[in-house]
Design a binder for these strands. Structure first.
Lengths: 123, 123
DNA sequence: TCAACCGTATTATACATATAATACACTTTC
DNA sequence: GAAAGTGTATTATATGTATAATACGGTTGA
């Protein structure tokens, strides 16, 4: 069963996107694996304090990406092939790195200053 | 005059937030300085291909933060004290660093792997 | 002076996001 | 078999974002 322990809503990003991102990052790290069952829409929405439709939107997009299967009446399961995991990993890392480098550059930081900042915030 | 050269809309973030972020980062880097005139709402909206109201929203928020003054009929000007710049710098760097570290951690990367990734994307 | 530009304001429409309240058919479990 | 839980679907409302079309009064500069 996929655990949402340690997941908290934050920032201005849409909730369904935050859920999607949490699941993809878990797949990349290996804490979420192929065949793992997801909490039901109702259970997760109650856990997060959001509307069931919001969870459903995240799950629907997950399924449309081929990362999950769902059948009426039964629990939904993650579908994670090695190829899919590598694809997600590349997408996420590239996006995050690009965003940070853009930000640091626009603020006039050197590569060394950026590295030192990350090092300090790692704790 | 504040230049928007090198600024392009990207991603899903609201346009008015992207404009605000660009101006704040410019203030931190020193490319935008106290007293600098901003392009008019109409001119900037035409340059970016967005609605004048969207630019007005960004400018209004900038003014509400005390980083700009505007008077009917005249050009708007940046208001950047040393204290304000330090505040913006802290806010932006903290937010960016926190976001990246959270992402890398959730994907199971080590500090060294994250540093190598940033180093590679710096080019 | 006066035309051009500026900041500001209003009204309307459209889309995305999120919530709320139901409803129905299917699966699982006792 | 029956109850509980599940995926799925619908309709409605509210808010934020973005666009569109105007309008008005103040400032600037030829």
């Amino acid at each position: 069963m996929v655990s949402f322990e340690g997941f908290t809503l934050s920032g201005n990003a849409p909730i369904y996107q935050q859920i999607l991102l949490f699941l993809k990052r878990g797949a990349v790290s290996g804490t979420i694996r192929d065949g793992d069952e997801l909490p039901s829409r109702r259970v997760l929405s109650a856990l997060l304090g959001v509307n069931p439709n919001t969870v459903q939107k995240a799950y629907r997009l997950l399924e449309e990406e081929g990362l999950m299967t769902s059948h009426t009446g039964a629990k939904s399961q993650m579908v994670l092939t090695g190829e899919a995991i590598r694809r997600i990993r590349s997408e996420l890392l590239e996006g995050d790195a690009r965003a940070l480098v853009t930000a640091m550059r626009q603020m006039g930081l050197t590569k060394e200053e950026a590295a030192a900042l990350i090092d300090r915030y790692w704790e």
